[in-house]
């Protein structure tokens, strides 16, 4: 049996031999393109909300002043009495000041320490996001120490705060405008609805492994 290093060089040699007289192609040789759709601010919001609704996510449009109140009302309707949130981030601080009628639980600064709590005692979490994509109705999330990956994955209900001006038209725009190629985080996510499966007889069921509900709180101050 060959060792890893031998396997590596044998595979690469096979590939190099196999190349023959193939010339490396460059991006200029590409043919075809993606249809170019220009969307203005309001169209981006509309398209995003439409796609999210089609994927069975809820989108609530509100303002910066009113969102804590809206969140409180949503939690009340869903009969959720406590919410996991990072109290070190702006939204967590706002909620703490607001003194809502539900319990605020801080993620703290060691996400590994809250694993059991996440699995067995967290009905809902609120996270921020980097932005969103109108075309596909996707949230762009780069988890970090305060808002870890598991927060948007394990609790049954995931609330997300999104600023309307952070909605881009396409994923390609996001990659280009934000310069993703120059530095990717540990984990970057696009989330486009609640978790789902059609693996049993092609019948769609929600809440397969991730959140059963995805609720987007869309903060739009330009409308007012």
């Amino acid at each position: 049996m060959t060792t890893g290093i031998e396997a590596r060089s044998r595979i690469l040699n096979h590939l190099r031999d196999g190349l023959g007289d193939t010339q490396p192609l460059s991006q200029e040789d590409d043919i075809g393109c993606v249809a170019d759709v220009q969307r203005n601010y309001e169209e981006r919001i509309q398209q995003f909300s439409h796609m999210m609704a089609a994927a069975k996510a809820d989108v609530h449009r509100t303002t910066d002043r009113l969102w804590p109140e809206l969140l409180e009302q949503l939690l009340r309707e869903k009969k959720i009495s406590n919410l996991l949130v990072s109290l070190q981030k702006e939204p967590g601080k706002r909620l703490a000041e607001y003194e809502p009628d539900f319990v605020l639980r801080d993620t703290g600064d060691n996400p590994l320490a809250i694993k059991d709590e996440l699995f067995f005692g967290t009905p809902a979490a609120l996270t921020t996001c980097r932005g969103a994509i109108a075309e596909t109705g996707s949230l762009v999330i780069w988890p970090d120490a305060q808002e870890p990956r598991a927060m948007s994955l394990i609790p049954p209900v995931h609330f997300v705060l999104l600023k309307a001006r952070d909605i881009h038209s396409t994923f390609a725009d996001v990659i280009r405008l934000e310069g993703w190629a120059t530095g990717m985080p540990t984990n970057a996510l696009l989330i486009s609805g609640p978790s789902k499966t059609a693996d049993i007889a092609r019948i769609l069921a929600y809440g397969a492994h991730g959140p059963r509900e995805l609720v987007v709180i869309l903060v739009d101050d330009e409308a007012n």
């Binding site: 796609m51 984990n187 996510l189 486009s192 991730g210």
Partner: peptide
């Protein structure tokens, strides 16, 4: 149009 999750690990 897209799957629920696109998970990019670096």
């Amino acid at each position: 149009p897209i799957t629920t999750y696109v998970n990019m690990i670096s």
